[in-house]
Computed example of a mutant assay.
Amino acid sequence: MSRPNRPLRMMLVPVLAMGAFAACGSDSDDASDSASDSISVPADTGDLTGLTVTGDVGSAPKVDISDDFAADGLAYETTVEGDGLQITSDDLSSAFIQYVIVNGNNGKTVYSTYDQDSPEVLDISTDGIPAALSEPLTGQHVGSRVVVTDTVKDIFGSASSTSLNMKNKDPLVLIFDVIGPQADMSDQAFDTEASGWLPGLTLDDDGVPTAMDFTDVPEPTGKLEVDTIIEGDGEAIKKGDTVMANYLGQVYGADDAFDSSFDGTPAAFQIAEGSLIDGWVEGLEGVTVGSRVWLQIPPGKGYGKSGNSSAGIEGDDTLYFVIDILAVSS
């Protein structure tokens, strides 16, 4: 199993570290403070004259830019309003998105997740996230398309202008398709008691799993074991799909987890050989969105004889995972 690097996050990390988003970080904080159960879809703001975006949500958009277009501060418009789950700055703050970044000067695509078939997860509650990302997405429903414009500097900071081969004042166009989450599992309580080969779970004060308890759990079978304890009614995962998921992973008999996303941001993984360990690819195929599944993965379908030293995994370790499937993109 591995967590792939994501271009949008890669562009954000260096400028976040340098504090380049200090000015618009306050805007993001204001958006978080105002979030509530009655949060509304953000109203369109600014002028998008000269910019036309067509196509269906879930497929690469066609972008036409005329001579009338100019980015004059942050502007955004919800061109398609979805009716799925709503992205908030509270429990559902992570959006599963496909997006396209376009040079506003010439209409050329700078980057597209559609080209890479690699949707990403963006947590709009992240400290320091620029207003151009958090403000237009807060309150959106899954199934929406949002068009955002601003300058390179105001979106990504001056440190990113070189990597984009653009000037700080140049206009950028971002088109976000919100494709997930497709299931809200925040109210699905975790079983803390061991059952059969399933270990118990240690939870924090918020009911989030932090570790597994292997007390009285039998020795691993040496085979890939899969147990879906909550079966969702969403789309079934196929090989090649990208899934949005929360997970906790631990070695059999260990006291602590070696990795978890439950206490942070859900992860996006492509279910494909070479992208993940075989146990994930084989174990998750056919699992439906909204499901909670346990995997027991023998070494041969995990990291093999070499193990994974960075995670403290030896070559003969059996891996256990509990996974919540939140969305799938084919």
Results as ranks from 00 to 15, higher is better:
M1P: 01
S2G: 03
P4Q: 12
R6S: 14
M10C: 08
M10H: 11
L12A: 08
P14G: 11
C24D: 13
S28W: 08
D29Q: 15
D29N: 14
A31D: 14
A31V: 15
S34H: 13
D37W: 07
S38I: 03
S40D: 10
P42S: 06
T49P: 05
T52L: 09
V53H: 04
G55Y: 00
D56C: 01
G58P: 04
P61L: 12
P61V: 11
V63F: 03
S66V: 08
A71K: 07
A71R: 01
D72K: 15
A75V: 07
T78E: 06
Q86T: 15
I87T: 13
S89V: 09
S93V: 08
A95P: 10
V100A: 07
V100T: 15
G107N: 06
G107D: 00
T113W: 00
P119M: 00
E120G: 09
L122R: 04
L122G: 01
S125P: 05
I129K: 09
I129A: 13
L137I: 14
Q140S: 11
V146H: 03
V147N: 09
V152W: 07
K153A: 14
D154Q: 15
F156H: 13
G157T: 07
G157C: 11
S158Q: 08
S158F: 12
S161R: 13
S161V: 15
L172E: 15
V173G: 06
V173C: 08
V173I: 15
F176Q: 04
V178G: 07
A183Y: 06
D184Q: 07
S186F: 01
S186L: 01
Q188E: 15
D191H: 03
S195M: 12
P199K: 13
T202S: 08
D204P: 02
G207Q: 10
V208C: 05
A211L: 09
F214P: 02
P218T: 12
E219D: 11
P220V: 06
T221Y: 03
D227A: 10
D227V: 11
T228N: 02
I230M: 09
I230F: 13
E231M: 02
G232N: 02
G234V: 06
M244V: 01
Y247M: 05
Q250P: 02
Q250I: 09
Y252S: 01
A254F: 07
D256G: 06
F262I: 05
F262G: 04
F262S: 06
D263A: 05
T265G: 08
P266W: 03
A267F: 04
A268R: 00
F269K: 07
G274C: 03
S275Q: 10
L276V: 12
V281P: 00
T288K: 07
S291K: 05
V293Q: 08
P298H: 08
K301P: 03
G302Q: 05
G302L: 06
Y303L: 04
Y303C: 02
G304F: 03
S306A: 11
N308L: 14
S310Y: 05
T318P: 10
L319S: 05
V322T: 14
V322C: 10
D324Y: 02
I325D: 00
A327T: 02
S329W: 14
S330L: 04
